[in-house]
């Protein structure tokens, strides 16, 4: 540990007022040091919203290195901390968070958690996925977001699902025009029927964006996936566990029937 990291962490631990704590967490987050991750994670449970926001921002900037710590935090019993961890996970868009986000977007008890997860599903780093896993992953995200946009009882969660559908719609456009028309017809329904004018307005904005940005430029500057084969295998297994629980039956010829094939391909990804 460097001296500056030690002193930044000590400042968080020694903070004796909520303003000092906020300042210390902000400084620690701004340092962008991996060694700060455990302390930033504990700041999620301090019941200080300002400090939690700063910690979430810091964790999002640290990106995939923070993901294993965040996944661990999801098992904790501190409800608020779990919600913040999901928010960070959603902001990072790491595929290891995909199945968690799918689960909580549709079923979590707290609206703040469903809200963050719906946003995160749309912002997933789809370009990291191996081709054959991409299809099932996006199909699951689409299904979850369509459900949430239509069914959630809280306006802000439906609003969030609309942003997720917009991002997903922009990401899938070339491979799956049929999915895009599913998103568009859902948008038309919401624009006419949603109880909340804020949700309708967000749909109008999403419709405009889908119309004007019909061709997504490949994002050249983005780094390739840092995930290991083991990571992908775990994601696949979790996805299939989830599908198994849903008891969905795929039609004959649906590529998602061929689990072993998908696993084999993901274990031997194409050279990047």
């Amino acid at each position: 540990m460097t001296d500056s990291l030690v002193s930044l962490i000590r400042a968080v631990e020694d903070a004796d007022s909520s303003n000092r704590l906020l300042e210390a967490v902000e400084n620690l987050a701004a340092a962008r040091l991996e060694g700060a991750i455990p302390t930033l994670i504990s700041a999620l449970s301090y019941n200080n919203p300002g400090a939690a926001v700063a910690a979430v921002d810091g964790l999002i900037h640290l990106g995939e290195t923070a993901v294993p710590f965040l996944l661990e935090q999801l098992d904790a019993h501190n409800y608020t901390a779990r919600a913040w961890a999901i928010r960070a996970l959603a902001g990072i868009g790491d595929p290891r968070g995909l199945v968690t986000l799918l689960g909580v977007a549709t079923a979590d008890f707290a609206l703040s958690v469903r809200r963050a997860a719906a946003r995160g599903l749309g912002m997933m780093k789809w370009h990291w996925f191996p081709d054959n896993l991409l299809e099932i992953a996006q199909a699951e995200a689409l299904e979850a977001l369509l459900f949430v946009a239509q069914q959630d009882e809280e306006w802000v969660v439906r609003y969030s699902a609309v942003t997720g559908l917009e991002s997903l719609g922009l990401a899938i456009v070339q491979a799956h025009p049929d999915w895009r028309s599913q998103i568009q017809s859902q948008f038309e329904q919401i624009a006419l029927n949603d109880d909340s004018w804020a949700v309708r307005a967000r749909v109008w904005m999403a419709q405009q964006r889908l119309q004007t940005e019909s061709i997504v430029q490949p994002r050249l500057e983005e780094q390739p996936s840092p995930l290991s084969e083991t990571d992908w295998q775990m994601i696949i297994e979790k996805l299939y566990d989830r599908k198994g629980q849903e008891r969905l039956v795929f039609a004959e010829g649906d590529p998602r029937r061929y689990r072993e094939l998908v696993v084999a391909i993901a274990q031997n990804p194409k050279p990047v």
């Binding site: 919203p49 300002g50 703040s112 802000v156 909340s196 804020a198 307005a201």
Partner: peptide, 15 residues
């Protein structure tokens, strides 16, 4: 510096 839930409700009012 406040909960996002409350900020979102306030911004909804503006919207």
């Amino acid at each position: 510096l406040a909960e996002n839930s409350l900020k979102l409700i306030a911004l909804k009012g503006l919207l």
